[in-house]
Structure formats: structure tokens, C-alpha cells
């Protein structure tokens, strides 16, 4: 029986392991970020989301729409009416319009080969959620990394040392040098490479770089800060009712705990006669 129990425990434990096995392409592990809005007590960082709205409108919405949100809703993040109007004008919209990109879909398809996905639900629609979106925005090769790639490719053959260096910089598997070489060739050839995109190559060129957006309040506009802000904004856009949900949740849970304890007390009393 003990053997059975051990077998049972092992099987259940194995089934509970959340990590899926990877078929062939080992997708890189996403660096875990800490967000103010995750966890049961989490709420959106409104300042970051407000800044992120500016990044989204000025940068992302050049191609992407965020059509489930109307410009006017941005006031929930603390933007004034004047600020909302100014942002809407960036895309040639007015404040009661949905946040749709000024670029039309045919034009987008002509330039990128695909219609840029709507970003309204992007943080909920990708495995890894916010962390993935952040990783993608910051996962394009830096100048230093491009230098490294050029240096390695200039040599012709990739040495073991080079392969390991490239692996640690660009997260390409060093075991398969053929594949690495093919990828680096495409990268040097100008294709859009991203460390965290499944398969590495995507239609979108690096959207944000340091200084892409000037914040009115002078907040640091490094790539990391801009990315963090816009991801916070997109997380809000994906679920604006989250805070309402959590705050109602605490009342409901509190009520249920009290009710269940009362029910248990009655159950004990009623059954006391039988036991």
C-alpha cells in the first residue's frame, strides 16, 4: 500500500508541475518583473499607467490600435480633459473615439506583411502576461550586442567561445551552431530579431528606444522605464475592472469565512447527538 501511495503522490506531483515540456524550441525563460497590480492586494500604478498612455499613443498607436478603450477613459488614470484631447489629436481622433490607430489596416499589411494586433488585451493574451510584453519590448539587441554579432560573423566560423557569448547575450541555443549561424545571418541582414519572441524573428522592428517619448514631468525616459510604463498602461487597458473586482472580493471572502464558521458551528452542534 505504501508503494501505491508513493506512486500516487509522484503522479499527482508530476501532473501539478506547471512547467510544460518544450517540444523542440526551448523558448527562453522570461525574466520575472514585479508589478504593483499583480497579487491579491495589487492595484495599478496610476502614475506609470498615465505615462504609459502617452507612450502607447505616441509610439505603439503609430501601427497598433487599442480599440476596446476610448480616449475619454484615460481620465480614469488621472489625465485631464485637455491632456486627453491632446493625446487623441496625435492619432487624429477626438476624445470620445476609440483608441484606434491612424494607420489603416491595408497600409499596415503592405508595410509589415501582417496586420499589427490590437493591444487592448495583449497582456492577457500572451503566455507570460505582462512579463512577456515587457520582455519583448526590451528584448531587441542593443548596440553592444549588435557589435558582438558583427564581430562573430566577421570570423566566418563560430567558435565554441563565441557561441557561448552569443547564447548569453541573445539567448540563442549554443548547441545548434547551424541554426545559430542562420539566425545571426538574418539578424545582420536587417531582419527584426527579438530574444523573447518565439522563433526570434518578427514583423515588428524595435518599437521603443531610450528617449522615444519626452515626459512632461521629466521622468526618466530610458528604454526600461518607457517599457515598464507602457506595459502598466496595457495591463490596465486589458482589465480596467480589476481593482473593483479585488476590492469586492475582500468583502465577499470576509462574509464567506464568517458564514462558513457559523455553519460549521451549527453542524457540530447538530451532529453532537449522533457522534
Amino acid at each position: 500500500m505504501r508503494l501505491i501511495k508513493t506512486f500516487f503522490a509522484v503522479c499527482v506531483a508530476a501532473a501539478m508541475v506547471p512547467v510544460a515540456l518544450h517540444a523542440s524550441s526551448g523558448a527562453p525563460v522570461l525574466p520575472e518583473q514585479s508589478w504593483s497590480h499583480t497579487g491579491i492586494f495589487g492595484s495599478y500604478d496610476k502614475h506609470a499607467a498615465k505615462r504609459g498612455a502617452q507612450v502607447a499613443v505616441e509610439v505603439c498607436m503609430g501601427c497598433h490600435s487599442i480599440s476596446l478603450i476610448k480616449f475619454d477613459q484615460l481620465r480614469a488614470l488621472g489625465l485631464s480633459e485637455v491632456e486627453v484631447k491632446k493625446l487623441a489629436e496625435v492619432q487624429g481622433r477626438s476624445k470620445n473615439d476609440r483608441m484606434t490607430s491612424a494607420m489603416d489596416e491595408t497600409a499596415a499589411k503592405d508595410s509589415f506583411g501582417v496586420i499589427p494586433p490590437d493591444l487592448s488585451l495583449i497582456t492577457k493574451a500572451r503566455k507570460g502576461y505582462e512579463d512577456y510584453t515587457y520582455a519583448l519590448l526590451t528584448g531587441y539587441p542593443s548596440e553592444a550586442e549588435m557589435e558582438l554579432v558583427k564581430k562573430v560573423m566577421a570570423k566566418g566560423a563560430i567558435s565554441e567561445q563565441d557561441a557561448l557569448e552569443v547564447q548569453s547575450a541573445l539567448l540563442i541555443n549554443a548547441h545548434d551552431k547551424e541554426q545559430m549561424k542562420a539566425k545571426l545571418e538574418r539578424l545582420v541582414g536587417g531582419a527584426n530579431f527579438n530574444k523573447y519572441f518565439p522563433g526570434n524573428f518578427l514583423a515588428m522592428p524595435a518599437p521603443i528606444s531610450a528617449g522615444s517619448v519626452q515626459y512632461a514631468d521629466g521622468t526618466d525616459n530610458s528604454l526600461k522605464q518607457l517599457s515598464r510604463d507602457v506595459v502598466t498602461f496595457l495591463a490596465w487597458a486589458a482589465e480596467p475592472t480589476m481593482e473593483e473586482r479585488k476590492s469586492l472580493g475582500f468583502w465577499v471572502m470576509g462574509y464567506l469565512f464568517v458564514l462558513t464558521i457559523l455553519l460549521y458551528a451549527i453542524k457540530r452542534r447538530i451532529w453532537a447527538k449522533v457522534h
Partner: peptide
């Protein structure tokens, strides 16, 4: 005591269903 407990719980439960 049991009567009171049942009464209070019933009221509490009914309030919850109403909510």
C-alpha cells in the same frame, strides 16, 4: 443557544443571498 445560532446564521445567510 442553538436556536439563536441557527437564527443568526439564517439571517446572515439570507442577507448574503440577497446581496
Amino acid at each position: 443557544r442553538r436556536d439563536f445560532l441557527i437564527l443568526a446564521t439564517s439571517a446572515f445567510g439570507v442577507a448574503g443571498v440577497a446581496a
